[in-house]
Design a protein around this nucleic acid. Structure first.
Lengths: 117, 117
DNA sequence: GGTCGATATATAGAGTCACGATATAACAAC
DNA sequence: GTTGTTATATCGTGACTCTATATATCGACC
């Protein structure tokens, strides 16, 4: 019974989006801060470049998962993004789906003859 | 301490390659059979199309991870691929790396305030 | 008061890859 | 002999990340 179609490229794209959304879970942040936080929380594993980050932020905003507002309080202009309700639901739902996919992936990769450690 | 650079596109490509390599772990198979077995073992989750499978097989062969030989015993020509020693080492090593990455990914996605179930 | 580095956002261009479409061919069944 | 299944192969398209580049502000230093 073939469930929803799996697409490896969409999977990679989802991972990037979810990393950004998860960085906004605790509080609103601007782009530069998001990159630093993800890099810090993943011990340097996940590192976004500018050319990768901003297109994704714009895409997420267009999809209504985050909302960006310009803040010019100090003088340096920053665009601060916050999770919308839709974004928060998307984050928890898709995170569960990613966990499901990777657990099934690892099971296939390890094979049936591998006893669990 | 930033370890090896992570690349989401390379990660997706690696997953596809590892799925194919893992299908050859037990015995040599031809392309068509590989697709059926992966689809079967993943309960229909991972499904390779022709246009995806064969370029990857050629790539893996060129890298020396698999070796393909034409068999014409019955008449219908099949190219049967078998894991090389290098391929077998690559499979187990990279599977471990994928497991490491996904576990760290899930940890970041779930966040620090999430208690383990 | 001018330069340099860090902060901060943005986009265009290049390169890579999966995917859909299409082609070819042999065998089975009828 | 036509149709469906098995089987391998490649080309073109599109989607996406990544590199490079552009712009601008602020702090520090001298």
């Amino acid at each position: 019974m073939p469930e929803d179609d799996f697409d490896i490229q969409g999977f990679a794209r989802d991972i990037n989006e979810l990393l950004i959304l998860s960085a906004l879970r605790s509080e609103p942040k601007h782009g530069y801060q998001i990159v630093l936080d993800i890099e810090n929380e993943s011990n340097g594993l996940f590192r976004f470049r500018h050319g990768t980050l901003y297109p994704i932020l714009h895409r997420l905003e267009k999809e209504g998962l985050i909302r960006g507002t310009w803040s010019k309080d100090v003088g340096r202009k920053k665009k601060v993004y916050s999770l919308t309700g839709k974004g928060r639901r998307h984050l928890s739902g898709e995170t569960g789906r990613v966990e499901d996919v990777v657990s099934r992936l690892v099971r296939v990769l390890r094979g049936p003859d591998q006893a669990p450690a």
